[in-house]
Simulated assay, not measured.
Amino acid sequence: MNQNKRFCLALDLKDDPALIKKYKEYHWSGQAWPEITDSIKSAGISDMQIYCTGNRLFMIMEVDETFDPKKKAEMDVNNPKVQEWERLMDQFQIPLPWAEDGQKWVPMDKIFQLA
């Protein structure tokens, strides 16, 4: 029985075609730093996909029963390579207008499902 759970999140990029292109380059298959993908997998995230339209990003995370968002946040704060990656990504990202202070990716609410 599949016990995975799905999280969908959104974030904006600065509306600059050159910055958006560079951000995409950092995320193309095989381009993300291995320490980053290792930290994602070690937190119980079994799959992660990021989609882009214009300057809006949409992330889908499939997580297993070991995933805990608070534990992942703590792991990230204590991982120097993740902090380096986050500082690098900050030059591309802007928070959504309704994001809380310091929040990047904002959880989305599911409003429809084809049954």
Rank of each mutant, 00 (worst) to 15 (best):
K110V: 10
T66F: 12
K41V: 12
K110C: 00
A73P: 04
W85D: 08
P17K: 08
F112N: 07
Q103E: 15
K14Y: 05
A32R: 02
E65F: 08
P17L: 08
C8G: 05
P97F: 10
K81S: 08
L114H: 09
K5F: 13
P80D: 07
T37L: 11
I50V: 15
G54Y: 02
P34W: 09
D109T: 13
I20A: 09
Q49A: 11
S46E: 15
Y26T: 11
M59F: 13
K41W: 10
L96H: 04
D64T: 12
L19C: 04
E62F: 14
E25Q: 14
L11W: 07
I20F: 02
I36C: 03
G102P: 01
N79M: 00
A10V: 09
K70E: 13
D109K: 14
C8Q: 07
T66S: 15
T66N: 14
A43F: 05
P97M: 06
T37R: 06
D16R: 05
D101S: 11
C8K: 10
T53Y: 09
F92T: 04
Q49P: 01
D38T: 10
L88T: 12
F112H: 09
M1P: 08
K70N: 13
E65C: 09
E35I: 08
T37E: 13
M1S: 14
K71C: 05
Q93P: 02
D47S: 15
G44M: 11
M48C: 10
S39M: 12
M61P: 03
P17G: 04
D109A: 07
E62G: 10
Q91Y: 03
W28N: 14
P107R: 00
Y23K: 09
F92L: 02
Q49H: 12
P95K: 08
